[in-house]
Design a protein around this nucleic acid. Structure first.
Lengths: 237, 237
DNA sequence: CGAGATGTTGAGACATGTCAAGAATTGTGG
DNA sequence: CCACAATTCTTGACATGTCTCAACATCTCG
């Protein structure tokens, strides 16, 4: 988290100190475990330290829509700091290490360091931006493009936290999880992935994803990373 | 806007005074005009004073996805306060009165009144929550349910700012705009609406929407207003 | 080695898209 | 206040992306 914030602006010693000493309960959690559920009124937020998680919502009929993937450095329920009731669940996808931070501690640090408060606010705004892009993705693109787009996003965001090597990465996401993220069927995701392999767009085996031709994947996925708002990170780098 | 904030918490005289004197350039704008475009780096945010607007994104192939409707009281690009580049456009749907507020003015009021800053943050979090629900809606529900859901949301949000009479309201939204919001075709939206009329779910003629059986529409649309986070408003009322 | 999860395949069904045309409504200038 | 143009709405026939179901293959891991 510090690393993420640090890439937005230069932390003062005080600010860094405050962030580093932020009291946090670190827990190791297996895959497919809910961190929080819709309807909860949490008094703490969770910081993903390692592993993949996802934010999801359920239909009355029990269909699941993953609305975003949560990667290391993300605080997927930072919103609960200002919204009493959670309207979504958060579940691990792979085994994770998660840091739970009490809201009081977050409020305290926000009160004392306005720039940190702004940075947190900004993080939630980027989340919102990603949701917007997902609405577009799910609403207007066909499954093949949609899949390519999500892969581009994942690779880009993983890259931003140093979890890619060249254009490959660890990707412990199941086809049925992709299905829930794309608003598609497992069967259909399977076929789309095979087509993408056949087209030389991706090499995907087990947990390992490699992108032979990044520019091509971006083109196919209509991927423009503006919505991730990494520009400031890069400006800082 | 004041009214919306006021329903969250009791403003002090100072806070109210600050909000009321917030310098704002009020402009009347025709329908189908962009207020801002993707790629802009605005130095002000817009407050919808009257009329309907929408936030949208475009596909490379020129397909439009409306990601939210902006109703009176909304500040659809409040995010630009902390994100340099806009990743979406905002367009009027009906003729609107819009107040443009400079970012400096917003920053200033946030600095001086932390509770107002929190309330603004909260507004953007509710926007994000709505986006999440839309991802679910577009990703997992079929068009009929989806339409019912969007109508429920509109009616509820309009009700929250006093723009409904009983269960009817003014709704200057075109079928093709609904299509862009649902990720569906105009033709299909037309058929869905006719079916809903036939089923006695809605009475929709021109700009006028009436809901004969609100509970039924909510049921059909799988509508649970939790995600709008009006609970505090009601608590305050 | 076996069990459960995950991935793969095929055939048929259905929701929704496409195209194309005509009807109804709305706004506007004469 | 009419007439025309431009939207918006409606309808039909057909195409297609995606789903459903159901079986089987493969992998992972205790």
């Amino acid at each position: 988290m510090i690393r993420k914030l640090e890439s937005i602006f230069v932390l003062t010693d005080d600010e860094r100190q405050a962030l580093e000493t932020l009291p946090m309960q670190v827990v190791a959690i297996k895959e497919n475990q809910d961190l929080v559920r819709a309807g909860d009124r949490p008094s703490r937020s969770c910081l993903v330290l390692s592993g993949f998680a996802c934010t999801y919502k359920m239909t009355v009929q029990g269909k699941r829509q993953i609305v975003s993937f949560n990667l290391p450095g993300d605080i997927p329920d930072l919103q609960s700091l200002h919204l009493r009731v959670l309207d979504n669940g958060i579940s691990t996808i792979s085994p994770c290490r998660v840091g739970f931070i009490r809201h009081e501690a977050l409020r305290d640090i926000c009160d004392r360091y306005p720039r940190i408060a702004s940075a947190f606010w900004r993080e939630t705004l980027i989340d919102a931006s990603i949701f917007r892009e997902w609405v577009l993705n799910v609403g207007q693109r066909e499954a093949y493009t949609r899949m390519a787009h999500v892969l581009c996003e994942l690779l880009t965001r993983l890259g931003a936290v140093g979890l890619t090597q060249d254009h490959s990465c660890n990707l412990p996401i199941t086809q049925s999880e992709f299905a829930d993220a794309l608003g598609a069927t497992t069967v259909h995701v399977n076929r789309v992935l095979q087509q993408m392999r056949a087209d030389g767009l991706i090499e995907l085996k087990g947990d390992r994803l490699n992108i032979p031709d990044w520019e091509k994947l971006k083109r196919v996925g209509e991927f423009d990373p503006t919505y991730l708002h990494l520009e400031d990170y890069q400006a800082a780098a």
